[in-house]
Structures are given as C-alpha cells and as structure tokens.
Design a protein around this nucleic acid. Structure first.
Length: 341
DNA sequence: AAAGCGGGGGT
DNA sequence: ACCCCAGCTTT
C-alpha cells in the first residue's frame, strides 16, 4: 500500500466516520468496554448494551466492586456471556486501573490480539495493529489473499500502522470494511484505496468464506410452576454460564425423576439457533410444591425467555387461573386479541 | 488448526 | 439456508 493510499484512507476516515458513542470519549475503560462488546457483535446491537453498562458502572473500579450477577443482568441478550465473566475478572484483577501497553493488556482475561491492539492504539496511542474481521477482509482484498493466516495479516497490518495516529488508522481500516468494503457487493467506486487493490475485479474471492457446520441438539425443558414463580437453576459450565434458566436436559425421564415427577404436560417446541448449533427444545410443564422464583429478577438467556413464553402460551390456553407466576415479564404480553387471527 | 461460544441481521 | 458480525479460549 502506498503512502498516498494510506493518507487517502486516513483522510477518508476523518471525514466519513460514523458518530459512535465510544468515539466520543478517550476513557480507556469506555474504549475497553466497547471493544469487548463488539467482539462478534454488530455495532448497532452493541450500542444499547454499551450505554446501559456504562451508565450503571461508570468506572472499571465500580464494575469490580459490583457482584458478577449485576453485570450479567445487563449483559442478558448480548450473548457470549464469557465476555462478562472475563470483564468482571479483569476489573478485579487490575484493581480498576488498566495497564497502558499492548503487552500488558494482552495478558488480561478476554483480551486477545485484536482487543488488546484496539485499546492500546485507540486509548493509549501505541502503534500496534488491530485486525478484526473488517480489517481482515480489507487487507485480504487489497493484497489478493484468498485464505490469509493470522500471522500474515498481522505482519501486513504492523507495517501499515500510522505511527502518529495508530488509533485512527486502525479504525479507518475497520470502518472501510464495515461501511464500504463489505462482504457482499462492496462499493469499490470511490474507494480511497482504489488504485492498488488486487481484489477489486473479483471481491468475492478475497477472502474465501469460512466453512461452518451446524449440529442439531434436541433437548427437553421443564417449567416447574411453584407458589411464587418457576423453578430456576443457575447454569454452570460453558453454555449460558452464570445465567439462570429452567431445568433442561437431553433425557426427559431423567429430568422428571430429578424433581420426583411422574409426568408433565407438553407445552410446545422452541427453536434457538446459535452459530454452531441448532437447538430444538421441547417444553414441558408441571406444578410443584417448591416456591419457585420470579424470572424477571434473574438474568436469563434469550433461549430461556423463549421457553417461558412458550409455556405461557400453553398455560393460557388451558384456561387455568391467572395467578401471577412471576414469568409475566419474561416475555412481552401480547394483547388478548392477538390470539385470535 | 479447529471447535465451542449467543444472538440477530442481511440476502 | 447460509454468511457475517470491530474474537477469545481451549484442545
């Protein structure tokens, strides 16, 4: 890439950059929060989470002093909940003060090559690259690389970083990928990198799509209706870790025995697609003697919200009592007429 | 190098 | 249905 092209891209960025909330601050904590939220999450989706979390926890120290569950409460629906665990651990490990170099940032939980580079360059002005999916695509196209490796991209990006404005440069590369050099139908006309781009004639070849295979997972969920709400368990392990949800498993018999039940009523089926998984959950419900919990007071995954909504629909159709089961806020209450098409 | 991890949007 | 998203961690 020529100096002239680099200057053109930087100038283009300064003129056309989107006005995003985290671009109005130089607070390293705010930059970090934004970058973590943006991991595999689209800008438009990250914005409301960014605002709410920053409003509730204005400083990293404040975040570290709060219980993890308070952060998870705000992280509900954002996905990749490990990010919340790691950010919370980071807040505690650093004592609320972020280190200022890429090498140190890279050691913190949840900060990989991209995020550490983004924070180091944007918040601290260190001349290190930050190659995300956008920058990867821009570089792959410009240099005509069908399947670039991480190391190769990093070498290229290191050589390009603008020493005087590393944060703006990294964001310029990203912004171009996000708004013009898009995966499909890139707007090559008027691209600041027009001349030397080798992918211009056939952008779809650079880079080649990454293959993903999806597995199907069949599960059973048990909505146990107690006196004051439904039985919720805290999910441990890898999936939805730290969030609450209804008992769920691959074997309905095992699930029923766990709660001493001989049977349960079928409420319906819920589908939940993840990147690597197609979940199909058959929802059953039963009354139990336990108290249960108010589902609106706990962080739940979107899957569990869907399950509770499905239960409500089935429960409503039985014409049973309208006692407050504590799941009311688990889904939007449709207006009564909505049921009759 | 590959798999696993959420959820939603675009085509 | 498939691909992608301002990726990271573990195997």
């Amino acid at each position: 890439m020529t100096d002239r092209e680099r200057r053109a891209l930087l100038a283009w960025y300064r003129k056309h950059r989107r006005d995003l909330p985290w671009r109005r601050t130089r607070d390293p904590y705010a930059v970090l929060l934004a970058e973590v939220l943006l991991q595999q999450t689209q800008v438009e989706r990250a914005i409301p989470f960014y605002r709410r979390i920053l409003a509730r926890f204005p400083t990293l120290a404040a975040l570290g002093e709060a219980p993890l569950e308070a952060l998870l409460e705000l992280w509900q629906g954002a996905g990749y909940y490990r990010r919340a665990h790691q950010l919370h651990a980071l807040a505690r490990a650093t004592g609320g003060v972020l280190p200022k170099t890429y090498a140190e940032l890279r050691q913190l939980p949840g900060l990989g090559p991209y995020t550490a580079g983004a924070v180091a360059s944007i918040a601290f002005g260190e001349a290190v690259p930050a190659v995300d999916g956008n920058a990867r695509r821009v570089l792959a196209r410009y240099y005509g690389l069908a399947a670039p490796g991480e190391a190769e991209l990093r070498r290229l990006a290191e050589a390009l970083v603008d020493a005087a404005a590393p944060g703006e440069w990294n964001q310029a590369l990203i912004e171009l990928g996000a708004t013009r050099c898009t995966p499909k139908k890139p707007a090559c006309a008027g691209c600041p990198l027009g001349e030397g781009c080798r992918g211009k004639r056939d952008p779809n070849r650079f880079p080649l799509p990454r293959r993903t295979r999806k597995k199907r997972l069949d599960l059973f969920a048990l909505v146990l209706v107690g006196r004051e709400g439904v039985v919720l368990v805290r999910r441990e392990g890898k999936r939805f870790s730290g969030l609450y949800g209804v008992p769920m498993g691959e074997d309905l018999g095992v699930l029923l025995r766990e709660y001493g039940l001989s049977g349960a009523a079928f409420a319906g089926e819920v589908r939940h697609g993840l990147t690597h998984l197609d979940m199909r959950v058959r929802v059953y419900w039963a009354r139990v003697g336990a108290d249960g919990l108010d589902a609106s007071s706990k962080p739940l995954s979107v899957l569990d919200r869907k399950i509770l909504k499905k239960f409500e629909e089935a429960f409503g159709e039985t014409g049973a009592l309208e006692a407050d089961l504590g799941v009311a806020s688990a889904s939007k209450h449709a207006d009564p007429d909505a049921k009759q098409p």
